[in-house]
């Protein structure tokens, strides 16, 4: 059984790491854009960002003072056993969020939407969000934290089948240009796109595509992967770079996640994971050991399964 104190400590460590250390995959993607950036101002901004990541790590301070809205994603192995169960996990994650907010420090960004009341610890009604997924045939549990900033960079539109890829590109350009001006989206960003599903699924998939896939990781469906590459190039050819200055650094990577949708529609959402693309994952093994990393590996084959049954589940049932 995994002790609940281990879960709390791992969630706390992941939250501190996410706030301070830029993920390597994002850094590699950003450096590739810096190498080809021709705009003097955009180039200067990106170099300042590279220096900023170094300063954050060296001083152990948050890379950006707007530490976004910290939240958690839990992936539980089907055989994982946790002391106190899932109710205990939720309490542990809320406690870790409050502790990290004080210790890093993170900005207490979470307020009541009307009264603007702030508990000063990033915990409150429905905060931090905790989303779940499961993984067959394993007994570890993974806690991923994401601190997504950005009041700017998200949009949703109901397209129709006849709109096709042109409609997707039009929506993509509309959003990129709107949020790219003056750099409101703090680009270059990882652009996540949710395609299909119902409206809520479409938003969730797009957000997860932006925040929970490593830069360089393509969608396993070759058609979708091709569209990802096309949109990335399209975004970088708009003529805007960092802060909206003339340049070519807009999209570090583009990730699309799809869900089966109503036959008459093609809902789409877009999300920009900014220059402070903060995420970290802690895997807690059944023996209580913990491993921290920055790639979430959220979209496993099991998550993207397409058929009614999952072959490995069948297998493990038979052997039981």
């Amino acid at each position: 059984m995994i002790p609940i104190s281990t879960v709390e400590a791992a969630a706390y460590d992941a939250m501190c790491k996410a706030a301070i250390e830029i993920p390597d995959d994002y850094l590699t993607g950003l450096k590739a854009l810096v190498a080809t950036e021709q705009g003097d101002l955009s180039h200067f901004v990106l170099e300042a960002m590279l220096e900023n990541y170094e300063a954050a790590k060296a001083d152990r301070r948050a890379m950006c003072a707007d530490t976004g809205v910290p939240r958690y994603y839990v992936k539980s192995g089907n055989e994982a056993v946790i002391e106190g169960g899932f109710v205990a996990i939720e309490e542990a994650l809320r406690s870790a969020c409050a502790r990290a907010t004080h210790d890093v420090p993170l900005r207490p960004n979470r307020v009541h939407p009307l009264s603007r009341h702030d508990n000063n610890n990033n915990v409150g009604l429905n905060a931090p969000e905790i989303e779940y997924s499961f993984e067959p045939d394993t007994d570890w549990i993974e806690i991923t934290t994401v601190h997504k900033g950005g009041l700017f960079g998200t949009d949703y539109r109901m397209l129709f089948p006849a709109d096709g890829v042109d409609g997707i590109k039009r929506f993509f350009l509309d959003a990129i240009i709107a949020f790219g001006k003056r750099g409101l989206a703090c680009q270059p960003a990882i652009i996540g796109i949710g395609l299909g599903g119902s409206k809520d699924t479409c938003m969730v998939l797009g957000k997860q595509a932006a925040c929970l896939r490593a830069v360089g990781e393509a969608n396993p469906d070759p058609e979708v992967a091709k569209l990802e590459a096309e949109l990335k190039d399209l975004g970088n050819s708009v003529g805007m770079g960092a802060m909206g200055f003339v340049g070519s650094s807009m999209v570090v990577d583009c990730h699309i996640e799809c869900g089966f949708t109503h036959t008459g529609g093609m809902p789409i959402s877009i999300h920009a994971f900014c220059l402070s693309s903060r995420r970290a994952t802690a895997r807690i093994y059944a023996n209580g050991s913990v491993q921290l990393r920055s790639e979430p590996n959220w979209f496993t084959p099991y998550m993207r399964r397409n058929e009614i049954s999952w072959p490995q589940v069948e297998k493990s049932k038979k052997s039981a």
Binding site: M49, N52, A55, A62, M63, C64, G149
Partner: peptide, 14 residues
Amino acid sequence: LTTVGYGTGALLGR
């Protein structure tokens, strides 16, 4: 004067 990035929080904090 505009800040840069805009995420240069650590540099400005320094």
